[in-house]
Design a binder for these strands. Sequence first.
DNA 1: CCCTGCCGATTGACTGGTCAATCAACGAAG
DNA 2: CTTCGTTGATTGACCAGTCAATCGGCAGGG
Lengths: 200, 200
Amino acid sequence: MAQAPPADKRRLILDAAIRVFARQGFHATRVSDIADEAGVAYGLVYHYFSSKDEVLNELFIERWSLLLAAIEEADKTAASPRQKLGAVATFIFDSYRHDPELMKVIIVEVTRAANSFGKTHLEQIQRAYESIAKIVADGQESGAFRGDVAPMFASMSFYGAIEQLLSGWIFGTIPASASDFDQARDLLVTTICDGLEPRG
Amino acid sequence: MAQAPPADKRRLILDAAIRVFARQGFHATRVSDIADEAGVAYGLVYHYFSSKDEVLNELFIERWSLLLAAIEEADKTAASPRQKLGAVATFIFDSYRHDPELMKVIIVEVTRAANSFGKTHLEQIQRAYESIAKIVADGQESGAFRGDVAPMFASMSFYGAIEQLLSGWIFGTIPASASDFDQARDLLVTTICDGLEPRG
DNA sequence: CCCTGCCGATTGACTGGTCAATCAACGAAG
DNA sequence: CTTCGTTGATTGACCAGTCAATCGGCAGGG
């Protein structure tokens, strides 16, 4: 048969892992579950990845680098600090809308698992916090934001609020309808930016 | 000898578990680690608890019921919505200051582990979100807060921001000095409440 | 006062099951 | 014939939970 699509088995395995990790959680999934879901043999997972951990690492790095790039981009492109933070929030919410399973895995198994995988990637995660903090600091220098809030505090609060809302949807704490995403994002950004404005 | 202190072994085991869970994380601690840390025999853990899980459950329920009570209390006692939210934040920050290891375990292993233990306690956790949401809703009715933010969104954002700050301290993302706690709490409450006020 | 029997607390060796990781073998393509 | 993607049975480590044995305090009978 003429060269069937290379069916990139590596990608196949990564995508299967997303589904299984999202469904059962990382600890509860056996490597055989990933192989079954991908429709490949057990051993092939170890041909492409050195361990079960590395599969998750790969998924995280792939996505987190996109987030870091998006924050940089927002910082360069958008005009006001408020718009910059809005763009960051939009990127994260859209990431969830576009691939909720992957975002669930990233948040639940890495970002919020600071004792296990989060530890490995602490530096990358922190880089995001710092980039957001930089946006806040610039906003303070331009006078758009009040100066008595440490940028890192504001950054952590901003990101923490976003992640908590996503967690709410992921675990059904908050009912989700399509329009809620945009509305929630606007409210969050508005509320936090209003709170960051110089005292009226 | 007159009645040596009963040396309540059950408590001894719970306190040892806090230390070990905080140090190694729940998954990475073996039941024998808990027993060693407590200075008791392996089997005794199973005399007082039906499983390793139940040890963590017990720790969570103990502390979370205090949080729920503190939120109710804040709602009844404090005058303004702003003061109510301030009291809630104070309780959580003080809990961390008083027993950082326990709070680390609660947050890392339960509250943010929505896939494993969080699932078991989702209802209790949600109860806290709802109580905070009620404070926000009351504030909206009295006109102290603007009405266009869903109370549950505000609640989740508020709690998420607090937890993210605590996580920052727990994992050294944010350097912690004694005064920082109170300052961070004030800034967080001020910023979020300012953001929730009717648009200036 | 001592002895005896009871019962809950305490001990730690052991078992059963689970999985991550290995590896020897296979087959298709060049 | 060699190379390399692919297969899946096997191995070896790990650990939660079990359980039979021991300890120690106390009651109550002699």
